[in-house]
């Protein structure tokens, strides 16, 4: 798949699935359990540590793994835009007037805003945490076959959560395809140019309503097709998941040791 075939969605589900199904890197060969435990360990580390150097090192490690897995780096930076905007929208209010060494101040008629070194660190820390969690999640999704991921979720989560996940992913593709074709039909008849905000809003509301109705119809038909094959409310994943190898246990032990160390020395 090249970029021209990729859809415009952020994140692009088609592209993610393409890599997860076709990637042949060392991470793709690792057990899905190892990768999932790794992701959980990273999230625990992010929760515990406030150390910026450690966060930078962790981000560098994850980027290195991402690059070594032959995943698209440029696309990753495109996708970073969303978490960056999200973090900025939160931190833009929080980073001012933090205790610490003042870097500069903005004075207004009745109040002033001061950015301190701690305020700046807060921004950097939150940005790094958002980027690390996003990149690590993408690394897991883009190196693990969907069937394995769904089998893991089937094993971990109770019903009906696992049932919802098992069925929603494929449905997501169908719904996105439906939206894509509707938007193409909309553009093919001269739509897509913003003439007025109210007209544009009305059009998007119509598309949304149509997608909702069609999705409901589709769900009814899928359910009917499943019932015709004996579905009684329980669907079990039948894919076998590759077990962890000894080297993967060693990696897991290293992660455990790191978390324990962080808990002991950095948890405050």
């Amino acid at each position: 798949m090249n970029n021209s075939q990729a859809s415009g969605h952020i994140p692009d589900l088609d592209l993610i699935t393409h890599y997860s199904e076709n990637c042949r890197s060392f991470l793709s060969r690792a057990s899905p359990w190892t990768k999932l435990i790794g992701l959980i360990a990273i999230i625990v580390i992010l929760t515990i540590t406030q150390n910026v150097e450690l966060l930078v090192a962790l981000y560098a490690l994850i980027l290195y793994l991402y690059w070594q897995s032959d995943l698209p780096i440029r696309k990753l930076f495109d996708w970073c835009l969303l978490p960056i905007l999200f973090v900025l929208s939160l931190v833009i209010l929080l980073m001012w007037n933090e205790p610490g060494v003042p870097l500069f101040s903005l004075r207004f008629a009745w109040f002033s805003l001061t950015l301190t070194d701690n305020g700046l660190l807060l921004l950097v820390r939150l940005l790094l945490k958002a980027l690390i969690s996003m990149t690590a999640s993408l690394l897991l999704l883009m190196t693990t076959k969907y069937a394995h991921l769904s089998a893991i979720i089937y094993g971990i989560f109770p019903s009906p959560m696992n049932q919802i996940f098992l069925m929603s992913y494929r449905f997501l593709f169908i719904t996105l395809d439906m939206i894509d074709s509707m938007i193409r039909a909309f553009k093919s008849r001269g739509g897509g140019f913003i003439r007025s905000m109210s007209r544009q809003s009305q059009t998007f509301a119509e598309i949304f309503a149509l997608v909702f109705i069609r999705s409901y119809d589709q769900a009814e038909r899928v359910n009917k097709a499943m019932e015709s094959r004996g579905y009684d409310g329980t669907y079990s994943a039948s894919t076998e998941i590759q077990q962890m190898r000894s080297v993967e246990y060693i990696v897991m032990l290293a992660f455990l040791a790191s978390i324990t160390y962080l808990l002991l020395f950095y948890s405050s």
Binding site: V222, A225, M226, S228, S238
Partner: peptide
């Protein structure tokens, strides 16, 4: 029943999972 729209029938993560769905039931 083989339905008119295959997309209504194929819901599982992989082809094998989908074909095994009936026999498992």
């Amino acid at each position: 029943i083989v339905f008119q729209k295959s997309d209504d029938q194929l819901f599982a993560p992989t082809v094998l999972d989908d074909v095994m769905f009936g026999p498992l039931n």
